[in-house]
């Protein structure tokens, strides 16, 4: 990696750190972040592959309310740097993922630290509001954001400071059983993310949909897009038929303003 590439990597890390706290454009999702690191270092394809793999692990990581998910941004950036500096190509993906997970925890603590520091910013904003000084409020909003950017950029810079051949030696000294085992673990670890999502969404009503999806996915002719369409159609059918069923059992009478013209026509028959 040359000097310009290192600066670009740190810049990407900064942007990804900002994106991970704002959580709207999703630049920080490993799928995008690892690809960007791959792009600026000239290993686009490798970055994309790592991003895809890591994305499956990070699938269910979401910030809900005040609860926080493991930090996908630091994990993705660090794993991509290690993968590219390690120079093992595709074979290094499993190991890079295994290293990324503990870093996601480290990232979580760093995020919590910054979110505590920004309490101070909230109080500064209070004072500036008294003076109706909106320029200063805007400035502090961006200072808060920069802290979150640095939270990923600084660890990335530290990783880059480790000479590439040292990273390489470290990775190569890992025995085959360990790296292969970590790749196998990487294939299974995806389940944790799904379990988190299911725990958030599951109710008696939606479980049948889960098993239907599971059973249909075994038919490999169905692409993810067609499975998605089936899912949407099933949900719509369920909700609309449910409304009709209710009308039928309660003798139909007062269903004039259901906002469902087709339903009204059918009811009139």
């Amino acid at each position: 990696m040359n000097g310009i590439q290192m600066i670009l990597v740190i810049l990407v890390a900064f942007i990804v750190g900002c994106s991970s706290v704002m959580d709207q454009m999703e630049t920080y999702q490993p799928l995008v972040a690892c690809s960007l690191i791959g792009l600026v270092t000239g290993h686009l394809e490798l970055g994309v592959m790592l991003g895809g793999q890591l994305q499956f692990i990070a699938m269910g990581w979401a910030n809900v309310g005040a609860a926080m998910a493991p930090d996908a941004s630091l994990a993705g950036i660090a794993a991509a740097i290690i993968l590219i500096e390690g120079g093992q190509g595709e074979a290094g993906i499993g190991t890079a993922m295994g290293i990324a997970v503990p870093l996601a925890v480290a990232g979580l603590f760093l995020t919590m630290l910054v979110r505590t520091l920004t309490v101070g910013i909230a109080h500064i904003m209070d004072r500036k509001a008294e003076e109706a000084n909106y320029r200063s409020i805007e400035r502090w909003q961006f200072i808060g954001l920069s802290l979150q950017g640095l939270r990923v950029a600084i660890p990335a810079a530290l990783l880059l400071a480790i000479p590439a051949n040292l990273v390489r030696q470290g990775l190569e000294s890992m025995p085959a059983w360990l790296t292969q085992g970590m790749t196998i673990g990487g294939g299974m670890v995806v389940a944790v993310g799904y379990a988190m999502v299911i725990n958030m969404m599951a109710s008696r009503e939606v479980w049948p949909f889960f098993f239907l999806g599971f059973a249909l996915a075994a038919l490999h002719e169905l692409t993810l897009i067609s499975l998605g369409i089936i899912g949407v159609v099933l949900a719509i059918l369920y909700l609309s038929l449910e409304g009709k069923g209710g009308n039928g059992s309660s003798n139909g009478g007062s269903s004039s303003d259901t906002g469902d013209p087709l339903g009204d026509i059918l009811d009139d028959y």
């Binding site: 196998i184 294939g187 599951a202 109710s203 949909f209 996915a217 099933l234 719509i236």
Partner: peptide
């Protein structure tokens, strides 16, 4: 919200079948 949960559970069932690899 309910529709999204149904759709979400359906797809997650499919994703588990496809992408959790245990051999």
């Amino acid at each position: 919200t309910r529709g999204a949960s149904m759709m979400g559970m359906f797809v997650i069932g499919a994703l588990i079948q496809r992408w959790v690899t245990i051999n």
